[in-house]
Structures are given as structure tokens and as C-alpha cells.
Design a protein around this nucleic acid. Sequence first.
RNA 1: GCGCCCGUAGCUCAGCAGGAUAGAGCAACGGACUUCUAAUCCGUAGGUCAUUGGUUCGAAUCCAAUCGGGCGCACCA
Length: 552
Amino acid sequence: MRQVAKRIASEAFARASAENGWNETAGISIDITTPKEEKFGDFSCNVAMILASRLKSNPRAIAEKVAEQMRGDEIVANVEVAGPGFINMTLKPSAWASALGEVFTAKDGFGKTNDGNGKKVIVEFVSANPTGPLHIGHGRGAAFGDSLARVLKFAGYAVHREYYINDVGLQMDNLGRSTLERAREVHGLPFGEPAYKGEYMKDIAREFLAREGDGVLNLPPEEALARSRAFTAGSILDGIRHDLAEFRVGFDEWFSEESMHKAGSVNNLIDLLLKSGHIYENEGALWLKTDDSGDDKDRVVKRANGPTTYLAADIAYHKDKLDRGFDIMVDVWGADHHGYISRLKAVIAALGADPDRLATRLVQIVNLKRGGELIAMSTRSGVFTTLREIMDEVGVDATRFFFNMRSADSQMDFDVDLAKKQSDENPVYYIQYAHARCANIFVTALDKGFAKSASPENEPLSQLERPAELKLVKKLLKFPDVVSSCASALHVHPVASYLLDLAGVFHNYYKHNRVVTEDAELTRARLVLVDAARMVFRSGLDLLGVSAPERM
RNA sequence: GCGCCCGUAGCUCAGCAGGAUAGAGCAACGGACUUCUAAUCCGUAGGUCAUUGGUUCGAAUCCAAUCGGGCGCACCA
């Protein structure tokens, strides 16, 4: 509907410009906003104020001339110039009512947009090292990345979700050794302090022995380590997959770093960049030139003693993404990796691609709050709660909602007590309850002989012209705008805010207006309204990865 | 020392391609169940948008500085 308003305003502006000979209009874009106060109408436009400074003229006078042109449109009820020069437009109730009907005729489902226009986007997220179970910080990244992928898909992008597995390197050796030490411990043999000290490592060691047999400890150290490393990483990764699946997070691909090394693509790429001059040698090591792209110094890609670094693999990985033809690469990282952004931008540039094709999203730290006490999460202090624990304790719906209720890039306090409460204090149920109420209305309706309409757009929607209905109709029709704006800003939390807002409007409506009444015409129209609300609640909750129960 | 993020109501946070009187939830206080589910609704109260200066018709929003909190600055990943 905002698009319709924008069209009306743009055309009016063009006519006014022609009539008044305004020439300084180049580059002026018509921006249509929804004013926060109802009395200012349905839509507002500030073009007159922008133009005023260029024409050195009175903004209100300019606004009046544009407004005059808008008044002619047949779906416009009223246009007013207000404040410093806002043009406020109110559309006819009949226009809103019939727009509601279009909700049901939208080909792919209401709210879906074509912002992406089929563009290929890869969202890489979680990508936690397979050295231990996911903690709640990973959980936030998982909830955000997954919902972002859902939003982008909803907005018309061809989305590919990927998990990058760091399955090589020093840490993996340490991990393998840790299992071997634990295995020795199990057998009462002398053992050293393992690098990875978590309890889960003991279980893995026992499984490892059961699988390989006790003789594995007598193998040559290299051989034993290789087996232990592979087993441990595999076992931990299985656990991660399992947790994520239960958290309703899925991936199209689990991309192994090791596979690139085996294929030789990391070294090949280094050679290529050596030739192109983006990589040079110094003091026995190979360095990537990054300093002209914002990073403060060059970075080592191959150490003097031989092995390639993490960055080297990341260059190859992003080259691979580019080769696979993704127009946009979204990398979701923990906030502690922010220093890595400029480095990776430099990588993209070195690969000959536009750095703007890479968008990084940082997910900030989560602090747990229990009994009013904050528990700081930090790997350093060894205090961390696993995603599994929190999922089991508060449930997937509440956990996902809480993570996506706040902007990903601001730190959040996760109030476990509040999230666990199955009461009115918990915002997630406020929305789910609204959905359940919608569903229940149809149970009642059917009872009274009102079947769900097969063609809602043909129902007597002109009944929906009272303020109470219009308010809900207008809120519902904002859903596509929310989706669009989330997709372009790579945000998710506005969906949660919107649903909370919509639920408020709906509950208010429900409380003060009965849907199923003796008035058949009115009932049929209102059932369409409720059906639309039901659809938006379900779609919106699905974007957040939260279930939409039929009854509660 | 350099860089990034953050500072908005008692608490948790929106708002930040500059717009009209700064919002929501929770907590507090007062009301509403004979109705399609009270996991709901209605009302009251709550603010120096960290501070200072700048940009302009207009700044919570943009710029600079300062103060506070978090996090980075590896031939780790």
C-alpha cells in the first residue's frame, strides 16, 4: 500500500514540477513514511521541505501545490499540509478494504516481496569450530542467521545457507590429543592435562575407544592422533548438527575447510596471488597486502615454518563463494571478530571483486540473567552455558524469539526467568496467543455456520470501514514494508517488533469487537480480516522460527 | 596507544537513509471476566536521549571532542 501512496505522490510531484517550472528537482526521491500519529493520516511525505532549500522558497507553499495535485486521485480521501511542510495523505476506507482482499490473491503468499529479484545470496553463519558444543552466543548467531536467511528468501532472494567447518589446524590437533589423553585416563594409564577440558570430552574418549578398540593407544602417535582427531571432530559436529536441527536451523551445505586443502585450492590461490602481486614474501613468510583497504597492516597467509594460516583458507573459501556466483555474501560472525572485517574486504578486493558484495553482520555477546543476577559469558573464565541447556530449559520458541527480539549488534541480557515464564510477562506468548485466538474464532464461526470463505476478496469487505477495523487493516498491510526494510538492512528484529505491535492492535480489536455475530454480512467481512491477521502472524512467526499454535 | 560496537523511562530495549508532542515490554499504581480463550483489555505514573560543541529551517539520529561500558589489535582459529 505504501507503494501505491508513493506512486500517487510521485506523479503529483511530477505534475506540480511541470506546472510551476521547478527545475532543481534532480535527484530528489519521494520518500513516503507512516507518521507515528494517526491524526497525521495514513502516509506522509517530506519532499516539499527538501525542495524548499533548493528553491529558496516557502516549504508550505510548495507542499500546497503538490498536495493540490494529489487531491485528484480517486482513492485519496484527504490531503493536508501540516507542520513545517509535511504533506499528509489519507486514503479512502474503501481503498484499504479492497487492498485487504488482495492479501489473499497474492501469488506467493502475503508479505512476500520481490526485492531480491532472484539474486543469489549466501548466508554463512554459526561456523563454530567443532571443538565443543554450541554455547548461547552461537545460539544467538544461529537464530539470527537462520531468520535472516528466511527473511531474504521471503523478500525474493535465492538464498543459500552455509556452515563453514574449521576442521584443520592446530586446534584440531589439540582436540585430537585431548581425546587421547582422556582415553589414557579411562584406562588408568598416565595422562597429560588435555587442552579441551570439558566433561563431554570424557564421553567422546569412551566412544572413541569403543569404536577403535583399546589397541588404538598403541598405534604410532601420528596414526593415533589422526584417528582421534577425525573421530572427535565428527562426533562433536554430529552433536552440533543435532542441536541446530532441534533449534530449527538448517543448512544447505556444510563446507569443510579440509576439503579445500585436500584439493590444493589454498596453495594454488596463494600462487596466483603471488603472481598478481597481492601476496609477497618477507622474512620467510608470505604476506597478503591489505593496508590500502582499511586494515592497519599486512597479514601472514603462510608461516615461515610452512603451514598456511586461517586467513589463507578464508581467501580460498571466499574465492569459492565468488566462483559459485553469489551476488551477495553475508557473513555472520561473533562480535569479537570485528577486527577481521577490513581484512576480508581486502581479500575480496584482491580477488578482483567489489568488496561491497561482502556484507558482514556481527552478533554481540549474550549475558544470562538468572534471579536478577547477571552471569557474564566468557570463554576466558570458562563460564558458558550451552545452547542445548537453554533450549531444554526455556524451549525453542522463547529462545529464538528472545534472540531475535533485539538488534543483533547490541549486547543483550537474556533473562532466563522471564523467558521461561508461561505468562503474560513473556512477549512471545502475547503473539502466539493472538494467533491462537484467530484460529479459535474460526472454530466458533464454523460452529455457527460460517465456513471459511473460498474467495475472501469477494466478501463484503466494504463492511470494514469503521475505525476499529481500519486500524487493523492498515497495520496488516504494513507487513510487506517490514519485510522489505529488513531484507535491505539485513535485520531481523523489526519483524519481532512489528508482530508485537500487530498483536497489540489485534487483542484490542478482539476485546472490543465481536467477530461472529448475528449480522451475517459483517461477520463474513470480519472473518476475512481475522484470516488475514492469522496469515500474517503465522508468516511473521515463521520468519523468526517460532511456532504458531492453533490453541493455547 | 590505535580501531570497532554501545550509552534513550526503575529494568530490558526499539527508534539512528535528520522531520511533527521520543516509543514498547516488564516492574509500580488503579480498573474490567454472564461474551469468539483474562496467556487478554482499559487507564495512571515514569525522560537533561551520557556530556559539550558543531552542521541546518529542523538532531536521539550526522560530525568532532570528552566521560563511562564491552570487544578487538597473532607467523591462533
